[in-house]
Design a protein around this nucleic acid. Sequence first.
DNA 1: GACAAAATCGTACTTTTGGCCGAGGGTGGA
DNA 2: TCCACCCTCGGCCAAAAGTACGATTTTGTC
Lengths: 138, 138
Amino acid sequence: MTKSTKPKWLLPVLGYGALAGLVLICFMVLRYSTVALSWEAELYAGTAGLIFLVLGLWLGYRRQRPNRKPSAPKDPLSPREMDILEAVSQGASNREVADTFHISLSTVKTHLSNIYAKLGVKRRTQAISTAKALKILS
Amino acid sequence: MTKSTKPKWLLPVLGYGALAGLVLICFMVLRYSTVALSWEAELYAGTAGLIFLVLGLWLGYRRQRPNRKPSAPKDPLSPREMDILEAVSQGASNREVADTFHISLSTVKTHLSNIYAKLGVKRRTQAISTAKALKILS
DNA sequence: GACAAAATCGTACTTTTGGCCGAGGGTGGA
DNA sequence: TCCACCCTCGGCCAAAAGTACGATTTTGTC
């Protein structure tokens, strides 16, 4: 799946916040435990909090790690299918595709069904998304 | 329509992160101070962590991301509309969008209709194509 | 508090899309 | 020649998508 590139700040910040909260809770619990805690334990917890803080800020600043490409062109779309997919990706309806290529609506549907099967998807929007991820569409 | 919703939420979110970190630091410092700390102090700090945790989750649940990208020429899509458009561009059906955002199918359709109107298109595939051309979608 | 924008939900309707069949013609290779 | 593949088309049906209203609630700002 293609990862969203939008929440560049929110997700890491929230995640770090959750972690910080957990650390606080753990800290609290430790304070009330009957186990004798040395000051090293508290130092450890506090340091963990700081680490999470820095980590969260760092993750928030630079994420966007490149995903591994799912380039598996084991789905050889036929030339005609590429035509249809291309047109569809630019917003054309089935009717419009049929008109521009001078074929019937049925043919367009058949091509699309085959495209969906080859790409392993169920909708045209998925086909577009997948095809772009597979680099077979610009 | 002309009034642009300023990122009044982004700042608090980032601020909350900083506050959580400060609480952690204060907690640590207090533990080392010679001042006798009552258990209420620790309870207070722990509660603060919990509050921040809940606050962060709540903020993340709604108001995912206020759009502050300057590359939007016109057509100010609302934050929610950007959410829907983003999901749709990745192949989600209306039903799936409704489920992932915990809203009704009607709401999704309403949002999409408004998106189409703002982008001057008639179909979701056109909306995706146009939005990418306008750089409001990656 | 008043106000505007945004977000939410509903119902009813039309259009589009997709699934599931089947089928015929053309082309190139074994 | 037969076979595999591609392109073509059709009907029927169901699901999804889109349109066109109206409506309430939430939210941010003044």
